[in-house]
Amino acid sequence: MKLRSIFAGALLALTAISGPALAEYPERTIESILPAGAGPALSVSQIIAEAMSKELGVPLTVLATPGAGGIKAFQTGLNKPADGYTIIDGYVAPLVLQPILKKADWNFEDFIPLHAAASNAFAIGWRTDETRWSSFEEMMAWGRENPGKLRYSSGQRNNLPHLVMARVLQSYQVVAQNVPYKSPPAANNDVKSGILDFAFVNVGNYKQDPEALKIGLVLSEQPAAKAAFGGAPSIAEIDADLGISGLAPMGWDWWLVKKDTPADRVETLRAAMGKAMNDPDVRAKIERMGFVPLDWDHTNYVEIVSGVRDQLSTMADAIKWEEDALKAVK
């Protein structure tokens, strides 16, 4: 009897101090689920999270959840309640690319957008003492003469850089072998030591040692991306028309919450993220990581993301083309 009353008392006290309906949102730690492991993307998300945390007055932690090309993080987020305490860091791969590749059954419109976060451009680079070619067009010519001989890395297989690079190679009818690497810096290292012929390079890795790799082609037509890679030639300057522009060939993320999240909580989060993304200090930190802070708020979400989806959909066959062509060469 005595025992039970003590326990009941403790429970009552607990409910009193944490009854979710009574208190003002947010009242406890919010989690943002990132579809990547430790690396630059984690740092960028932590910068934004820290700034939002100051706005909201509660901690906002980033949970690095790699696995299955980002699907694990999305699933994890979708399995949490729609109470505004879980943010899904909507990177393009799980948000748009995986549904196109039929690996995920959601649509980008199944989520409520908060604000766009950051984008990062990719480029193709090879080692500085390369003697077989000195420009991208020359490398493509070499590749056409030696089908199946070129070895490159896009990081993981079937990721966004792979799709874009396969599309570029397809438009030149060059058959090359992608060698998957979990860590992009490791792939870059193997390019430098001559094991690979070329690899995708992101701005952060390029900036750490601009002398180590020659940037042959920036995979974005945007002037800012070209500038970030030291003015290297971009896809706007090559002969082939790839039909990709804007955010489509880049990595980017848009912070999202689950459908059914209460509207007032969504507004609170949107306001906090909007402020964070406009903070000059936050922008400067993101830019130092080699990422570009994005200005779009939730009103632009459908337009921007559907544009990317439409472009990526037209490219979806490039990876399949590469696989078939490789088998034919062998």
């Binding site: 403790a10 944490s18 979710p20 009242e27 989690e31 932690t61």
Partner: peptide
């Protein structure tokens, strides 16, 4: 029992910002 469970919760939730399982009642101590 109460001391250990709340003591550890305090360390993890307030010092390390870990969100412990809230269950269907969404019980989390701010």
């Amino acid at each position: 029992s109460l001391g250990i469970s709340f003591g550890l919760a305090w360390f993890f939730e307030s010092q390390l910002d870990v969100v412990l399982p809230g269950g269907i009642f969404n019980l989390n101590i701010p």
